[in-house]
Structure formats: structure tokens, C-alpha cells
Design a protein around this nucleic acid. Structure first.
Lengths: 195, 195
DNA sequence: GTCTATACCTGGATAGAC
DNA sequence: GTCTATCCAGGTATAGAC
């Protein structure tokens, strides 16, 4: 269970490099160097570059789902769980300022390439969307739960894009605070405290 | 004043292609085809691909400034002008759903390439930021004007990213409406109507 | 200013030895 | 399963004729 196969190592390295350099800009040589295997060996594990991309997306889907499951445990109330989501902007702020959001930037790139796997990449967003939608439902925002999930997802995406462009972590923190306030407000509107 | 030079045509074609396909994915051959000149001729006008990128960014800066100046004329009140900004999401929704925001996606790509011109590309955001900041100041939100500009910029970026991933124009329209409502609220808070 | 031809390199992909 | 050697396409860039 502990030692990773070469295939796993390739996927892991590719995942990182695709994030940091972009899919197209990352060559087999780059990945091979990172894993410390020869380029030829590569093709034993993956026949094409597209196959690696698919494997990377699949791995991200699994890891994302795990993270969501984890938040389900960590956050007692729906509002706490939503805050877990918002706070990834803080937790990952250094990376975000350098490379943007891993999901958003990948979707952007694949859309421009009109790549066959672009819809698969969007599934990463769908995972967050559905999970957030579920939390907003639990919060009492039944009819608008999905719209609110999309709204929050969009705001966090925008923050990542601008934080990347301006390298501004104060901005991230301000916006995170505002998003938390907004969720709080949503909750109160959905089930007003009886005073 | 009317006939465009070959250089202008190259910049125009490159601008479009960089937007639709991304900078890296666009080859000289692509641009040459679009302009209907030979690849060789290319190098008479630009020595390297980076030079074309710089020219494209410079052109976008000029065009963006023109657009902002235009909004200054079109919108009587600051709030009308800010609405001009918000509504580009609607005006360009088809393109946005296919290729995302031209500014955000370019900045993302150049950041990953760690390209020398990435800061120049971010200047496009700065143009919007400062202009919006000016409008929010006029609206009466003096101390927070810049933060509000950044907030609105971020929200529109996020909307573009998700609209691209989900190809959802209803979502764009809903979010545009919410942004307009938010600006309205900002205005009222800054200078409350005396009833 | 525009063209053709071409040099040169990188990157994806294959073949076959070990 | 991993390696070396190699092929081939495509992309940047140059030279030089017109």
C-alpha cells in the first residue's frame, strides 16, 4: 500500500508540472526528468500524452472527492463545511499567486486547445458545485442552492485569477473574509434566528 | 488612415488567435495563414514570437483604454459607467463561453510560462482596476474604492471562467444581474437617498 | 516588402536490446 | 519494466532571390 508504482509517480509528477507550467508547455522530457526515468520507459506506461492528461484528471477527481469527504467530517455544520471550501484560497495562497487555481487554469487551457478531455476537466468544477449545492441545501437555501454554489465557485475563481495577476495576498484575505460574511448572511436569511 | 499596414494585420490576427487558441498553441504558420502572407515575410515585421506578443499586448492596452474612454462618454453617472463594464460579460458572452476572458486567460497562460511579458499583460487588469476605482470614488466610496474595483473585477473573472467551463449563459445573466444589484447597493450606502 | 527554400531544433512517438 | 537509439512532424528562425 505504501510504495508507489512508476505509473503513480508519473501521474503525480505530470499533475504538478501541468499545474505549474501548463499542459502543452510540459514535455515528456520534463516529466521523465522529474520522475528520473528515461523517455522511452514512458511509453510503456502511457501510449500518448493525452492518456497522461486523462490519468491526471482522473487522479484529481479522486483526490478532490477525498477532500470533500474530509470536509464533511471536519465541519460539523454546513456553514463550517462551506468555510472549509472558502479557506482553500488561504491554505494554497502561495501556489495560487504563482500558478492560479489548478482547476480553473486547466479548464481554460483545454478549452483553448479544444481538447477532447476538456469536459472531463470541467467535472472537477462539477464536483465542487454539487457538493456546495448540497451544503447550501442543508443550510436551508433549497431552491437557490445550486445558484449559490455557482456564485461562490465563481467568486473564488475570480479571486484566484486576480491574486495570480497581482500577487496580492492581502486581497485574497479580504475577499475570503467577504465570502465568509456572505455565507453567514445566507444562513441567516434561510433560517432567521428567533430573538 | 484607413488602410492597415501588414504589421497591423499581423497584430490583429495574432490577437484573435492568441485569444482563441492560446499564445503557445498559435504558430507562425497559423498567423501567416490568417493574414495570407508567407512565413518568411513575417520576420520582416517581427524578429521573434515574443515581439508579436508584446505588440498584441500593446494594442490591447490601447484598445482597452479607448473602450474605457468611450464608457466615460456613454455613462452619465458613475453607476451607469460601471454597468457598462459589467455588461461586457453579456455583450461578449458567446466568445467568453468558448474562450474565456481575453485578459484573464492570457495572464494565466503567461504566468505558467513565466513569460517576460506577464507583467505587461497584467497591466490590462490594472487599466480596468484604476478606471473602476475612479468610478467608485465618484460614487462616494472613497476609502474602499480600490477594494471594490478589485471585488468587481474578480467577480467578472470568475463568471467568465465558469461560463467557459459550463457553457452556461443563463448563469452569466444571473450573475450580471447580481453584480448590478450590488453596485446599486454600494451607491445607496455611499450616498443614502433622503426620503 | 514579399516571396521560396532551407537550416535547425524540440517534442511526440516507435523499435528493439537488456 | 527500463533502457538507448532513432524517426518524423512541426515550429522558430535565417538567407537570399525577386
Amino acid at each position: 500500500m505504501k510504495d508507489k508504482t512508476t505509473r503513480d509517480l508519473i501521474v503525480e509528477a505530470a499533475d504538478q508540472l501541468f499545474y505549474q507550467q501548463g499542459y502543452e508547455h510540459t514535455s515528456f522530457a520534463n516529466i521523465a526528468d522529474a520522475v528520473k526515468i528515461s523517455r522511452g520507459n514512458f511509453y510503456y506506461h502511457f501510449k500518448t500524452k493525452d492518456e497522461i492528461l486523462d490519468a491526471v484528471i482522473a487522479a484529481r477527481l479522486v483526490n478532490t472527492q477525498k477532500m470533500l469527504d474530509q470536509w464533511e467530517v471536519e465541519g460539523q455544520e454546513p456553514i463550517d463545511r462551506i468555510r472549509c471550501f472558502i479557506r482553500i484560497l488561504i491554505a494554497n495562497q502561495t501556489k495560487i499567486m504563482s500558478y492560479g487555481c489548478p482547476v480553473g487554469t486547466l479548464c481554460n487551457e483545454l478549452a483553448k486547445l479544444n481538447h477532447a478531455s476538456k469536459d472531463q476537466a470541467s467535472m472537477l468544477f462539477t464536483l465542487f458545485r454539487n457538493w456546495l449545492g448540497g451544503q447550501f441545501s442543508l443550510l436551508g437555501c433549497n431552491t437557490e442552492a445550486d445558484a449559490m454554489a455557482m456564485h461562490l465557485l465563481a467568486r473564488s475563481q475570480g479571486v484566484a485569477t486576480l491574486a495570480n495577476a497581482f500577487h496580492d495576498e492581502i486581497f485574497i484575505q479580504q475577499e475570503v473574509q467577504q465570502m465568509c460574511d456572505w455565507v453567514e448572511l445566507c444562513k441567516e436569511r434561510a433560517s432567521p434566528k428567533v430573538v
